[in-house]
Design a protein around this nucleic acid. Structure first.
Lengths: 106, 106
DNA sequence: GGTAAGCGCAACTTTCAGGTTGCACATATC
DNA sequence: GATATGTGCAACCTGAAAGTTGCGCTTACC
């Protein structure tokens, strides 16, 4: 159960299409300043800044100051943690199915 | 980008510790009525009902009526979709790293 | 038939996420 | 030095999520 409490904030950070799009952009390996990440999006720079703050709070991105701009980069380790939860639940389910099948087949 | 819009509601359904706990319980393969799912939790039955409605809206659980009780069961297919998004972003990141390494090593 | 169990629906409150606007501040640029 | 660029911070608005309570309906049980 405490696994649920640990994973929920992570999923919460992933629960917004804008944030997912930001992560997808950053997944190409190139760190970018906020302006570049906000470009093309129908949102204020401030809104994007807030989303990046949420992602950073979840440990999904890293921040670095370079002159007058703030560069954001992906931190894929945390993505793996979200995957781990999904894998566990899926595995438990598959085990349950296997046991059921074995029982039925006698 | 539209992948983000498709995956976000799914992650949103996973963004609550109570809902994750419900899914963990259901992952043992045994469908349960609402009362059984609400048992032990410090929540009203109504609250649990609402959470189950959210999970059902995201396609993560299935509902079935049996007499006076409503039985909920896990639907792991949708979990796989969430995993798929995480895999894609992770893969894109790894590719980017590989290209970078190849470029550096010349 | 009467009673208890299991749910669903609706109204209501409270909290918070997402978004905007306005302003101040530091850093490039000319 | 003057100006434009890139951010950060704070106040504010709005809508929705999470939770509760109350009531009514159906199904099981004796």
């Amino acid at each position: 159960m405490s696994k649920a409490e640990a994973a929920a904030p992570l999923f919460a950070a992933l629960a917004d299409p804008t944030r997912l799009a930001l992560l997808e952009r950053l997944a190409d390996g190139a760190p970018r300043p906020i302006v570049a990440l906000a470009a093309g999006r129908s949102l204020t720079r401030q809104a994007v800044t807030k989303h990046l703050a949420v992602l950073r709070g979840a440990g999904l991105v890293a921040r670095r100051r370079a002159g007058r701009e703030t560069i954001y980069a992906l931190r894929p380790e945390r993505l793996a943690e979200a995957r781990a939860w999904l894998d566990e639940v899926g595995a438990q389910w598959n085990d349950a199915l296997a046991r059921l099948k074995a029982h039925v087949e006698g």
